[in-house]
Design a protein around this nucleic acid. Structure first.
Lengths: 235, 235
DNA sequence: ACCGTCTATTGACTGACGTTCAATAGCCCC
DNA sequence: GGGGCTATTGAACGTCAGTCAATAGACGGT
């Protein structure tokens, strides 16, 4: 114990640069929260921070500071930064999925339109975060990739279910699944381009036009794929 | 491996852990290269390293070690790690563009097929690197995003040029540009899904099938977009 | 051969950041 | 009011991106 570390002298008091940003301002009374509350708070902070800056540009210190807690506590809830990021992405994905849920008693085409409209509305409402996540989301970690891929699969299931029951078997072939996955890429790229055009003040199509573009493209893909696989089916 | 680093009297001779990986093996004669050679070597190393691991998992030390040079020298050629990464991505993009160039005297449809086949061939040949770059490429830096976006624009130009001259004006509307950008997303997502299916040993379509999927989808998008913008044009 | 210049190259240094862990402080229950 | 549970702290560590003054090796001039 007595072996004072003293190395040289480095490790100064760090000048305490916590601005008025964090919660613990004056006397810093230790705030004790319930596990779920704290976790929810941290995920919420993750959503805003990772939605504004890229992964590398968000430091654990910044998060802890904004939450008014120590860095160590964050590691009590998430084992690594990547796991924390994964939890954030997971939350964003589940909110997206939830907010684009549609009435499954409605006719398929109506559901498709409603779902796409909800999607585009969500994208527009969270434009910056959507763009940031889409441009830097995956790739940080296989776990993140898994979450994103599962979310995409959820959308594909939702959009194609009830959608021409007779076509379902055909939509399970390798080429059809590739086509559907491609369409998701289409939708994401188009949505991203759309909100970026808006953000930059460029002339951009209306939401209705974009929705029609996505819907008609999907239907065309489904139609032509099914036709090529079931040539006996009447067009 | 032997990562023990003398905590007390720090700054020992560093135990010289350079394995047989780097060039400078035995007596480490300082190798002096021409600026262009050195730069080319480093970019080449970047292609292999960033093609195998994600950005964060590639350290400057690892690159320098593999090149048999000091870290400082790498910073003599590239101001930051991101700039180094950008140079690597730029090289990869320009190789992709170069290897998918087509004979512009051939008829448009033939050019389209040839271009897509070249693209898919490139993707298949560099499957791992393509997947890694696509999943983690953008988002690290706005500069990277610019490079990728410019490369996409190059492809769009190439694919649509000479392709139904009468349609060109219509293909310049906001909705049409969005549709084309969407198609690029379609192509990338489908290509990625394709090589991943192959890599995982899953049943995957043939390259011809994928090429047909991409081509027919593009033509359908062009056709329907042009039709909706120029309703007077005969189909 | 010697010397001077030029520059590719080095390697030790720094600050920042992710991560760990033993110690601490607030809360609840007996 | 005391004891146990656990949320919370804060300092320390190893790693890594980025900096910089010093060096070495080639080349040209004399």
């Amino acid at each position: 114990m007595a072996s004072v570390v003293a190395k040289t002298s480095r490790r100064q008091p760090k000048t305490r640069l916590r601005g008025a940003r964090g919660a613990r301002d004056a006397r810093e009374p230790r705030v004790r929260l319930d596990v779920d509350e704290r976790r929810a708070q941290l995920v919420e902070l993750g959503l805003t921070h990772f939605g504004e800056r890229a992964y590398d540009d968000v430091s654990i210190d910044a998060i802890a500071d904004a939450a008014g807690i120590s860095k160590g506590l964050l590691y009590h809830y998430f084992p690594t930064k990547r796991a924390y990021y994964a939890a954030t992405v997971k939350e964003a994905a589940s909110r997206l999925v939830a907010s684009t849920d549609t009435d499954d008693s409605a006719p398929p085409l109506e559901r498709l339109h409603a779902g796409l409209d909800a999607y585009l509305g969500y994208v527009k409402a969270h434009a910056k975060a959507y763009a940031t996540l889409m441009r830097s989301g995956v790739g940080v970690d296989p776990e993140i990739a898994r979450i994103v891929d599962e979310t995409r699969a959820t959308f594909i299931d939702r959009l194609t279910s009830g959608f021409g029951q007779g076509l379902m078997p055909a939509l399970d072939s390798p080429i059809a699944r590739l086509a559907l996955r491609g369409w998701v890429g289409f939708a994401e790229a188009a949505s991203l381009g759309w909100v970026e055009s808006i953000a930059e003040g460029l002339p951009a199509p209306s939401q209705r036009e974009v929705r029609e573009l996505l819907a008609s493209t999907l239907m065309e893909i489904v139609r032509s794929t099914a036709a090529s696989l079931l040539p006996s089916t009447p067009t």
